[in-house]
């Protein structure tokens, strides 16, 4: 009889313990979630970067990159090199603004198509190549691990990454949490496969004809950027231009500064 009573009593106490445990875990999770506090004032690069003017956007970028959270880049179809270019300009900005080295993590497959970053090309983009550490991993999983480990070490100025596949909610949240304590800028170029992720911003990058100087030579690289997602800003689409000397983006006006159109399309237009 006593035995039976014990058994009958067991589940309720066990349930209670379980409920308590879950409550404790929930609390812990809430604590963790409170930590990054995205959207707080001073959470963007504005706090560390010079502003153009009282109302001008940071570095001429039309919207703020989130610091201490994941910024995703997605390349438009076939425009992966352009996305690489945008990624490295952001890395150059991060290096300019913060102390320490920059770390660039790439899965080997992600570099297979167009090759590895080239030192002199990076230098011409305005990036301090001597402060850049390149990490090549075998798999995306290793790349994400390396990204997280780098962010957690809190020893670097800025972190950039390229992975081949998509990014799931869990790993993007992990990256967010890892980037939060030092508000390390984190930019990740991911594959086109769309998946839900916890990124603060998502930019779609497409190539755009470069600005020419008066002799017709290439002067500044340009990108067609689309802000598809932004936690505290308005999405939009802009044509921006990178000045590698002043380390500044510039919005290109719609009518002026148009690059010379190819002869072929001129003829078609005429």
């Amino acid at each position: 009889m006593r035995c039976v009573a014990n058994i009958a009593g067991f589940p309720t106490s066990w349930e209670g313990a379980k409920r308590e445990r879950i409550a404790a875990l929930r609390k812990a999770v809430e604590g963790l979630q409170a930590a990054p506090a995205p959207g707080r004032a001073g959470d963007d690069l504005a706090s560390v970067a010079p502003r153009q003017g009282p109302h001008g956007p940071v570095w001429g970028l039309p919207a703020d990159l989130a610091c201490g959270a994941l910024n995703e880049l997605v390349a438009a179809h076939g425009d992966r090199p352009a996305a690489f270019g945008f990624l490295f300009t952001l890395t150059a900005l991060g290096l300019k603004a913060r102390a320490g080295p920059a770390v660039f993590v790439a899965a080997r497959r992600a570099l297979a198509e167009f090759g590895a970053p080239y030192g002199h090309g990076l230098a011409q983009l305005g990036l301090e190549v001597g402060r850049l550490i390149l990490i090549e991993t075998k798999t995306d999983k290793d790349a994400l691990w390396a990204l997280e480990e780098t962010l957690r070490s809190q020893a670097v100025a800025t972190v950039a990454g390229v992975i081949e596949g998509g990014l799931d909610l869990t790993s993007s949240r992990r990256l967010n949490l890892a980037a939060a304590p030092q508000r390390t800028p984190l930019v990740l170029l991911r594959g086109a496969k769309a998946r839900a992720s916890a990124a603060a911003t998502r930019w779609r990058i497409a190539a755009a004809p470069a600005a020419r100087d008066r002799f017709g030579a290439f002067a500044h690289w340009r990108w067609q950027v689309t802000l598809e997602r932004c936690r505290n800003g308005r999405p939009g689409q802009w044509l921006i231009e990178w000045n590698h000397v002043t380390h500044r983006f510039r919005l290109v006006e719609g009518l002026a500064d148009r690059p010379p159109v190819a002869g072929a399309s001129l003829r078609r237009a005429g």
Partner: peptide, 29 residues
């Protein structure tokens, strides 16, 4: 906010252990 100087060395160690030597590179002209 500054990281201690050994933090970077330890980071490089950890990454090299897991990813193997040659996975980390730095470019020199």
């Amino acid at each position: 906010a500054a990281a201690p100087p050994e933090a970077l060395a330890q980071l490089i160690d950890r990454l090299q252990q897991r990813l193997g030597h040659g996975a980390m590179r730095q470019l020199h002209p």
